[in-house]
Design a protein around this nucleic acid. Sequence first.
DNA 1: CTATTCACTTTCCAATATGGAAAGTCATAT
DNA 2: ATATGACTTTCCATATTGGAAAGTGAATAG
Lengths: 103, 103
Amino acid sequence: MTNPANGLEPLFNAPTRLQITAFLSGVAEAEFAVLRDMAGVSDSVLSKQLSALSDVGLVELRKSKLDGRQRTWAALTRKGRKSFAAHVAALQQLVQMAARAAE
Amino acid sequence: MTNPANGLEPLFNAPTRLQITAFLSGVAEAEFAVLRDMAGVSDSVLSKQLSALSDVGLVELRKSKLDGRQRTWAALTRKGRKSFAAHVAALQQLVQMAARAAE
DNA sequence: CTATTCACTTTCCAATATGGAAAGTCATAT
DNA sequence: ATATGACTTTCCATATTGGAAAGTGAATAG
């Protein structure tokens, strides 16, 4: 009921969120500004995408102070890591199914 | 000018077209009905997606007769195979970048 | 030889999605 | 008291995706 039977997580199809997630999967957590710059989007867009991921429990947002100013840090939750791994596996299956048939 | 700098082919982001393309990458060509059923979409949707891929030269459509009735066959062009390979490579890069950073 | 049927194509319409700009929030810093 | 910084929300405009329905052209059926 969650995924479209092919194992792909809908939220990970959009390139921006895929990039964000892939990046997060490689680190413990990342700063808002770092994510925004690596994804090449505006503040508002990143904010909305992170909220979307957070709303479904794939990402956890933590607010903390750095240099007296409030900063936001994002991290994949355990669920987020699992979901991303499943997504990647599904992608690989698609590709490998193809590669196998091509022999 | 073609791709969004990350190597991903925009047309391959949508799951439906990714599935169609992955499938086609594994075979010489496929029948319209086979693709429609494997992708789980309606005639109109498959027709439009194939046209979209064909419009930019990623897929070639061939009309031929089988049992007296006209059938449509789809095949990836050389450009389509290259583009798909690049897309897959870009996906793997995203994931591997992540995996490497996670060590 | 007109009527159907088959195999798509196109057109018509929602429903979403995506993105930036602008305005809004809420702590500091001045 | 005002201005900043760091996001958040709201407002829009555009684009995508998908199905239903109507349309097309070739090939039977009657």
